[in-house]
Amino acid sequence: MTISPISAPPAGVAPRPGSATVEFRSLRRAFGSTVALDGLDLTVHPGELLALLGPSGCGKTTALRILAGFETHDSGDVLVDGEDVTRIPAHKRDAGMVFQSYSLFPHLSALDNVSFGLKMRRVGKESRRRKAMELLELVGLPQRAEHYPHQMSGGQQQRIALARALALQPRVLLLDEPLSALDAKVRLNLREEIRRLQQDLGITTLFVTHDQEEALSMADRVAVLRAGRLEQCATPSELYARPATAFVAEFVGTMSRIPATRSGDGVEVLGRRHAVDGTVPATGEIEVLVRPENVGLVPSAGGPAVVVGASFLGAVTRLTVKLPDATLVKVDLPTEQAARLPIGGGAQLTLPDRPVLVDVRAGSGQ
């Protein structure tokens, strides 16, 4: 089955010749009574790095493995440049994959690991050595060409795995939580390197992660999954500033929930009426979701709120404020301003004059 590719890549994305459009259409996969994917519809544009983000069990790795050919799906379509790849075996799908566990051959040197796929395709010895050395240069490890995996750090091994995945010049690069086994500093450096390489090469890339910081810092767009369904797919800035659902709002970044009451087609919260971004739930007690940087806070002798905690974050300090009903609210303020709000001191909270996101309070009967 061949279907025409759809739409152009997002602004700023520069695909290389040969990079692919990937589409999941109404994709469903169940393992017994557990539904891993429940009608996933998603398009990855040529040259785009799209992160699949969500909690464990949301279906993100299943989607990646189905695209790679390591899993089958129960229904729906997987298309690469409009072609249904369902019946194409994994080794012929022209996709490079990097795993969390590196998966290098322990008995082969870095050079031989990188050139292994080229050898399987019967590329001549000199040609594959030259190509492998070019890729080792690309990932910054030419000096490790003759080293074996046990002689390299985790970050170096993952760079070798990345070079190996790129050796066959795949149309699609698949990254399955490749940084989760590394320590924090190495993880930060390597995610910057992966992003730089991906942009330089212009290769269509799917990156699976449960780490929101990785997704937001690396991806052109982020697809947030929950229980096998797509909650929202958007640029990192849009996802953070305008989450489509309460789940996305709380999964991406920090959110506080503040009790509210209905007021016509809006809500009343902290003594003021606000318009709502979306619709107000018809039943159940409701709460407004707000990010720490969007809450105003000034000293106020005698309350009504009380500062009960402070976390120094450098230029910003995150205060925890308790409302009269015992609700805790996170507030980010410049550290100099936060110093004027001591622990135990009274304070007054305000929200910005713009539409707010509303959700039903947990346990309120819905």
Rank of each mutant, 00 (worst) to 15 (best):
K125S: 14
L197M: 05
V290G: 00
Y148P: 06
S153H: 13
F99S: 06
I203S: 00
A215P: 01
R16I: 10
A11G: 08
G266K: 02
A227F: 14
F99D: 05
Q143Y: 03
A8K: 05
P89K: 09
V316P: 01
A161H: 02
N189H: 14
L289C: 08
T320Y: 05
G309V: 08
D353C: 11
D81V: 03
I203Q: 01
P334T: 11
V13P: 00
G278S: 15
R291T: 05
R164E: 04
K92F: 04
G302N: 00
A215G: 03
R242G: 10
V22H: 00
A305S: 06
L197K: 07
S26W: 03
D277R: 14
A215S: 05
L313Y: 10
R121T: 08
G346F: 00
E48A: 06
M1A: 14
I160W: 00
A227Q: 15
E71Y: 06
T61E: 01
P334D: 13
A63R: 02
L328P: 09
I286F: 09
F251I: 13
R144T: 05
L53V: 07
V224Y: 00
L188C: 12
R191E: 12
V248K: 04
V114T: 00
P17V: 13
T21C: 14
S237Y: 13
F251W: 08
G154H: 01
A315P: 03
L52A: 09
L138A: 13
R129L: 07
G32Q: 07
P5Q: 11
P89T: 08
F116W: 12
L174I: 10
P355W: 07
Y102P: 02
D112R: 13
G12D: 15
T62P: 03
